[in-house]
Design a protein around this nucleic acid. Structure first.
Lengths: 187, 187
DNA sequence: TTGAACTTTCAGAATTTTCTGAAAGAATAA
DNA sequence: TTATTCTTTCAGAAAATTCTGAAAGTTCAA
């Protein structure tokens, strides 16, 4: 594999963005490389292409492994290990969501719940609890929602995505549908 | 305002999480403080409560201002400026999404589009372009989708959120609905 | 068991990010 | 105008993160 200008710009950009998605520049670059390479790459080749140390490659691959974003390939008669990105682009996005949820949402929700259980000691804490409850409910909704999206089959998800701004229309329609099915229930 | 243990744990946790959402620890803490304080706070008070320098508070507030997450309040007969979190929790989440989209998605989409326009020079680049196109389409879908969610009215959004895992059901239903309305069109 | 070819680990170096505090700037009152 | 009370800026300090490369670990063939 060779770093043509096209591939280089993709890899570097992914490096910059990577840090936003919860991993560092090098990890982003390694992953970008593996995603657009048809052939699995070995650790030395990755280090050479990106101009980073062998140790750094090792740590990056370990990190990507913990995110389940790469898999190790063993080639016939090769002692070296080769690495490949894992799953489809959809799977990749799902993994990133999943991982972020575990690292960011879950601990936050747990803390907020704890605070909600506490006895408010004064006026200020009563107000604080009110706000914290709002935040908790919002985060919980978002979490449940993304989880339910993740459990949809890929082609259903695709349909949903393609709907785009049609979501509003679907919702109106769903409203009438729901109120017909359950006329007694009010939102 | 005083930092009781309850409020302190909330503020510190938000500080840690803040960096995940695109701003640093101090900015997260300042924002957390403003969110759970019923009264607007002045810059000195914020600095004292968090134990950070006056200059740092100023920079943090500037950052939050650029995100449109805080607003300045002028009190009768006070020379100092007071700060308050702006809008509802929903608004806050929207602002964060919006800002992240601008900073992360838009530049990436633009780069990917550029690469897609390039002429592939060899087999490797042909494969790379294929993958890049997949990523582009996925990101574009997600972007359009979140934008359409953002343009929904808060109460519609709420309904949608409350649907949770009902999304699957709605989708099935939508399928039949769509195929009845547009029987000629195939996905 | 040895040696070759690889991988992993981790202390300290390099780099990047964040924070401080002094100085400069702005608004207002007298 | 000057004094007072606030805010902002930014160079350099401090802290946090990331990276390197040598050493230790692993695997396997002979």
């Amino acid at each position: 594999m060779q770093l043509t200008p096209m591939i280089e710009s993709f890899v570097y950009h992914f490096g910059e963005m990577g840090s936003r998605w919860g991993f560092n520049r090098t990890v982003g670059q390694i992953y970008a490389l593996l995603v657009i390479s048809e052939e699995p790459l070995c650790a030395n080749e990755i280090g050479d292409l990106l101009g980073i140390s062998r140790g750094n490659v090792s740590m990056g691959l370990k990190e990507l492994g913990s995110w389940q974003l790469v898999q190790v390939i063993h080639k016939q008669g090769e002692r070296r290990e080769f690495y490949q990105s894992r799953g489809s682009i959809w799977d990749m996005a799902n993994r990133v969501f999943e991982e972020r949820r575990k690292r960011e949402m879950d601990p936050t929700l747990s803390l907020l719940r704890d605070i909600m259980m506490d006895e408010a000691a004064n006026q200020e804490e009563i107000y604080a609890q009110k706000r914290i409850t709002e935040i908790h409910d919002l985060l919980e909704n978002i979490t449940e929602w993304t989880q339910s999206l993740q459990s949809l089959s890929p082609d259903k998800l695709n349909t949903l995505m393609k709907l785009g701004s049609g979501v509003g229309k679907v919702l109106e329609f769903t409203d009438t549908f729901l109120s017909k099915k359950e006329p007694a229930k009010k939102t």
